[in-house]
Design a binder for these strands. Sequence first.
RNA 1: GGAGAGAUGGCCGAGUCGGCUGAAGGCGCUCGCCUGCUAAGCGAGUGUACACUCAAAAGUGUACCGAGGGUUCGAAUCCCUCUCUCUCCGCCA
Length: 424
Amino acid sequence: MLDSKFIRDNIDLVKEKLSARGSDVDLAPFIAIDARRREVLQEIEALRAERNRASEEIAALKKERKEVDPARFKEMKEVSGKIKAIEEGLKEIEQETENFLLTIPNMPHESVPFGRSEEDNAEVRKWGEKPAFSFTPLEHFELGERLGILDFERAAKIAGARFSLYKGAGAQLERALINFMLDLHTREHNYTEVLPPFMVNRTTMTGTGQLPKFEEDLFKIDGADYFLIPTAEVPVTNIHQKEILNQEDLPIFYTAYTPCFRSEAGSYGKDTRGLIRQHQFNKVELVKFVEPEESYAELEGLLANAEEVLKRLGLHYRVVNLCTGDVSFAAAKTYDLEVWLPGPGVYREISSCSNYEDFQARRAGIRYRKKDAKKAAFVHTLNGSGLAVGRTLVAVLESYQQEDGSVVVPEALRPYMGGLEVIS
RNA sequence: GGAGAGAUGGCCGAGUCGGCUGAAGGCGCUCGCCUGCUAAGCGAGUGUACACUCAAAAGUGUACCGAGGGUUCGAAUCCCUCUCUCUCCGCCA
């Protein structure tokens, strides 16, 4: 959420920043209603002040056991009626401003390249090499089905399309990846592991920006106001919802493994086979709460933490700086990590690392108190996948496949696989 | 699922028959004084948001005692609804 005062004072800048991301919001109605809001507020506050004064007067008279003129009561009853009437209008106006603000996306940071679509994203760097094969590499679902470690047909029978069933070494490999990632981030990168609820309420979904705009992408529990989380970012960022943290508590780093649930209506027809696009997938998430001055340095750190997973697994990847037209609703800046998939021969997003600045903090009410500042300030929140587990498994299968269809287990994972070296 | 109790400031805790209660008292914390050091003691301060005045510093007003609504000239205090916490019973991995 943007600061309404900031919008008021910087209309042209806000307009420019939003149009850079392809959002041509008309700010004029907001400016008008915001002005009206303050006008009504002043009116109502003056009346309330009058009521408070009268109240004190009456209290003083009663204390001295003096008579109160009945006309006074009548007069104040009218004032109260007026207040109530204006209050209703004010509530509507406030609701309207709130609704507007909640649907305005974040402004991209100055280091975000201008662009219209993902075509315009800027490659930052590449790491490693595309693995060379003396044969035509297979896609992961072929490998997985042949090895008997992935079973999409039965997954469809149990649940439907876009669900997966891992078996044997496949299930074990998924679990190994989760543990490997969590251990790396907790032991070497200073994150605190958390295991949050996989369902959250509406307020929490609004805090990180999934609601009110993207309800159709979420799975909602029927008969209760719970949603399945689309990412651990949601419950974990909201850990400190409506809190004022101490400066010395920052920065706070959390990592969490959770399954993620995404409805993503409209995605049908894309990536229909395999693990790439699922209604349920596993992810290890990294979340940071930091002071504003530190947030861009912390974004680089977060990105490096996610990259480290790929490096240790020996998977070739590239880092992409998303352009203004491709950064998501709540983010000010996003780096995507794209892993190389030898099967289809493409780079595939495997992590998305973003700085939200104070956009989520303002929505969720996450503040901190600076040592000698009188006012509490909003923290900056960041998060990134560290990594999407299913897609990592895809990359491992495809990158480490051998001509006979077996798959070599990357060394970093062997301790988590009971020493297993090859899946065959 | 059933029965009961409760929700007040960073924490503990008081709020009488509704009336200067943003909220007593204590603890904690900050600054100052005092003091070989520490402790004790003394003094002052110590929530958030919004609006207005304003260059700023600051000041003024309004709101907030779990959330929302109602009664009333006036609600932390009375009434209703909801949420959460605790205790007991039932069920249960």
